[in-house]
Design a protein around this nucleic acid. Structure first.
Lengths: 342, 342
DNA sequence: TTTTTCAACGAAAACGTTTTCGATTTTACC
DNA sequence: GGTAAAATCGAAAACGTTTTCGTTGAAAAA
């Protein structure tokens, strides 16, 4: 059962392929009569343009690539959903690839997308990525690239982010406002800009409130991941060290959940003995006990915004107009729940 | 900065496009010398074949489509990951689309994928899907189609599933074994095969153990979704009705979490007063308090298996060999936790 | 030497579409 | 009736590959 082509329609109607093509695209130089004829036959034959041929001719595939560190992740799931839904509105399809937080893999995936000639690339960096040649290569090939969430400041492209520093400041300030005197920070992996900014926000909030900044209260992760077990381990360590900590600002809800789980096990009361603020506002943090005070990170909207920006740039390149990169900051909000006092 | 083509390589080397193409694909009728020459130049020029042209010529895109009800979902995230990772091994890319549990949208998405001429389609049905014309159309166009998790028995294609009935039986049996005398069931939406089979397993376990099956203890969902709020509502309803229920087998962990949250609020002790078994083994069910006894549903492996089967069928169609549809059942296991007695 | 075989290459068609540009016909205008 | 303008169509090139089938020249066999 072969797919029907323009040629077949043309032969059946005794007209040329050219006219058929034009009729279907409502060119002004084909008469209303033949247009009607062509469209009718096309409909009954169930004609669909061969997208391979269209791609070759138009040099675009109406497909974009998306590279994220991890698919199984509440935040990124929401981003994916935002991207897909927005892309669909413009007739774009989305190819998803993961980097597994590995620079090597991320590089490979970007190159794979380039060789498949997607119309643009959306990326959130792996925690380990410190070299940006693969990204600059994309830009040099005149292919639109938009980074979101985990970005590299050094790459000249549009970026969709939140103000991590401000959000972290807000989170820490809330701990201070609710009476915490000695506040620790679980900061996650070393490299990504996110971790750095959240740490800076934490530090700034302390200093602005005339509190001491004690580096020994900042707990790093061992690996490049923000995992449940990291939360447990850091919580256990903090408990052991007995430094009089009464509040923790934690990099990610997943880690916060691990910490809470460990504190529950150890019999540490939350928020009475230790208050906790997480980051991301996963669904999970609203159903765990105690529910977690956290920073709402708008994943869905970030996905939408990222695609919209990419789409703008795709169109710009088609029209050969230059567009300078934009940095778009999305709003975050503190969500107060049971893991902090009020 | 235009991409380099075979033609340019040919001109630089003063040979024909044909020979260049053959050299790169190691045809036997080109001399080792020219092969080396071509390959070297191709490497330095950073040649990558124009996939649009290759697609048009070979009539395949090395791309498959995936349609799922919902992206933001722990189980489906794992399936996606399994599919992507397996697809990558064979050089396939994955386009993801959602149906939002809507039949209309599902139909549209399938047609969209067909018009983009993917090499095959993987699908997990929307809860509302009761008509299968859009799926049969795929098969009639000789395009491989594999269904997983939420399937339709009536469609003649390969299916990757778990034995829902057996798993539900196991779950219910566990409630019985741990002393429950009056067991309710939250069954989820009406239509999907999953719900039906899990319900049947529940019922069979009761009868096999000489217990009464009471239809009034089966709670349906209002809408086509398995939501947190459904769990809360059904739990509240069950609490109000005071039917002496001491155990519940719940369709999905998400609903179970809602129910637990409501029981916690109402002061109902779990598992002392009511035991609960969920379904799916989400990560969340291992961190909530109490942790939930549940059925482990292998999402990642299901994704891998689904792609492998699709790949087999893609190859079969290329070789024009017939392949009859396969039904592959994956193993599930009961994960005992705190929401049931022991 | 002549014939046969084989190695190495290239011309050309094909995949199905889009678009430019020219050709033809019809209509409008004086 | 003649010319100009507008309406309608189609030939052909192009996008970049892949693959079939011939062609050439040289080596091997006779």
């Amino acid at each position: 059962m072969k797919p029907v082509t323009l040629k077949e329609i043309a032969e059946k109607l005794n007209i040329s392929v050219t006219t058929v093509s034009k009729a279907l695209k409502d060119y002004s130089d084909v008469s209303p009569k033949t247009k009607a004829l062509v469209k009718e036959l096309a409909a009954t034959l169930n004609y669909t343009p061969n997208s391979f041929a269209v791609n070759l001719r138009t040099k675009e595939s109406k497909t974009i690539g998306l590279v994220i560190p991890e698919v199984v992740h509440h935040f990124f799931s929401n981003v994916i959903k935002g991207i897909i839904s927005e892309a669909e509105k413009e007739g774009y399809l989305v190819i998803i690839l993961q980097s597994n937080e590995s620079y090597e893999l991320e590089k490979k995936q970007v190159e794979l997308l380039m060789s498949h000639r997607v119309d643009g690339i959306l990326i959130s960096l792996a925690n380990g990525t410190a070299d940006f040649k693969h990204l600059n290569a994309v830009i040099e090939h005149d292919k639109p690239l938009v980074m979101f969430d985990k970005i590299a400041k050094l790459v000249k492209c549009s970026k969709i982010i939140i103000d991590d520093q401000k959000a972290a400041y807000m989170a820490t300030q809330h701990l201070i406002d609710t009476g915490c005197k000695r506040i620790a920070h679980f900061r996650g992996p070393l490299l990504p800009q996110n971790s750095i900014d959240r740490f800076l926000g934490y530090k700034k909030a302390l200093l602005d409130n005339g509190m001491e900044y004690d580096p020994s209260l900042v707990y790093l992760n061992d690996c490049d991941e923000n995992s449940f077990d990291d939360g447990k381990m850091n919580a256990a360590k903090l408990y052991q060290e007995q430094k009089g900590v009464d509040g923790i600002f934690i990099n990610t809800d997943m880690v916060a959940i691990g910490a809470i789980s460990e504190f529950n096990r150890l019999g540490v009361k939350i928020p009475e003995e230790i208050s906790i603020v997480g980051f991301s506002n996963w669904f999970m943090s609203s159903v765990i006990s105690p529910t977690i005070t956290t920073i709402d990170q708008p994943g869905y909207v970030m996905g939408q915004t990222a695609f919209k920006q990419l789409y703008k740039e795709i169109k710009a390149i088609k029209n050969k107009t230059m567009l300078s990169p934009e940095i778009i900051q999305l709003e975050t909000a503190l969500v107060k729940r049971e893991s902090t006092k009020n």
